[in-house]
């Protein structure tokens, strides 16, 4: 039996009076690629913040490789939706990568195809290149789990495809567990092995093949999408 990488047991969370997550349970195995789908305000980002230990569940328990989330932070790589910097940020790719204590520098840098970008300012890169640099920063500490919060937002289609293909390779070749938040049903159905649909207290979790059923149950029967299932194009 493969080991649980993430175990969420009956977790609830509310911001003052508004309940955002209610009694959510799911388990991810090592090497899983899970896509989290849900509309704005459905609790996707709150769930990520709970997994990273930036928020504390009101009820329930979260464990990562059997450890409490704070003790498991070493094992997690996180790619935020955006950084806190603006166009005036002068840092280069090299300066950013040097911030992370690297265990396997060159391999990750080659995989993310950023070796030519070292001396460029981060803010002068394209959206796709920036996303690959942030992901490389997260991967340098060789995490067991990679959590990405809508990494493709603001990136052109070509950049998105390249980035998502890299994620797929990372999952398949390195066995990194991937948890990807997205608005894009097609992206999740094409790349993820499993999906978690989230909509304010309604949840469905399972293989991406069941996405049409999950979507009807969580988002309503009028929600339309045209999926590629995982494995169709790989």
């Amino acid at each position: 039996m493969s080991m649980n990488s993430i175990k969420v047991e009956s977790v609830s969370f509310r911001y003052s009076k508004e309940s955002v997550i209610e009694n959510l349970s799911f388990e991810m195995k090592k090497g899983d690629f899970v896509g989290i789908l849900g509309p704005n305000g459905s609790g996707k980002t709150t769930l990520i913040r709970l997994l990273l230990g930036f928020l504390k569940p009101e009820k329930g328990k979260i464990s990562i490789f059997g450890k409490n989330v704070f003790k498991a932070r070493e094992l997690i790589g996180y790619v935020p939706q955006k950084l806190d910097i603006d166009r005036s940020f002068p840092g280069t790719v090299r300066e950013m990568l040097e911030l992370v204590k690297s265990k396997s520098g060159n391999e990750i840098i080659n995989l993310m195809e950023i070796n030519q970008l070292f001396d460029q300012k981060f803010v002068e890169l394209s959206g796709g290149q920036q996303q690959r640099v942030i992901t490389a920063m997260s991967l340098l500490k060789e995490p067991e789990i990679l959590i990405l919060d809508e990494p493709s937002s603001g990136i052109d289609v070509k950049g998105q495809t390249k980035f998502n293909d890299l994620l797929s390779r990372l999952n398949a070749e390195k066995g990194v567990t991937v948890l990807l938040i997205s608005h894009d049903v097609n992206l999740v159905s094409k790349y993820a092995k499993k999906a978690l649909c989230v909509n304010k207290g309604h949840y469905c979790f399972g293989a991406t093949k069941e996405l049409p059923k999950f979507i009807k149950e969580t988002f309503g029967k009028d929600y339309k999408f045209y999926p590629h299932y995982h494995g169709d194009s790989h």
Partner: peptide, 17 residues
């Protein structure tokens, strides 16, 4: 200086590192 640069980039990334 390194911790300050990390904090400027992103508070959450800095904490996770």
């Amino acid at each position: 200086r390194k911790q300050i640069l990390f904090l400027i980039l992103n508070k959450e990334l800095a904490e996770l590192n």
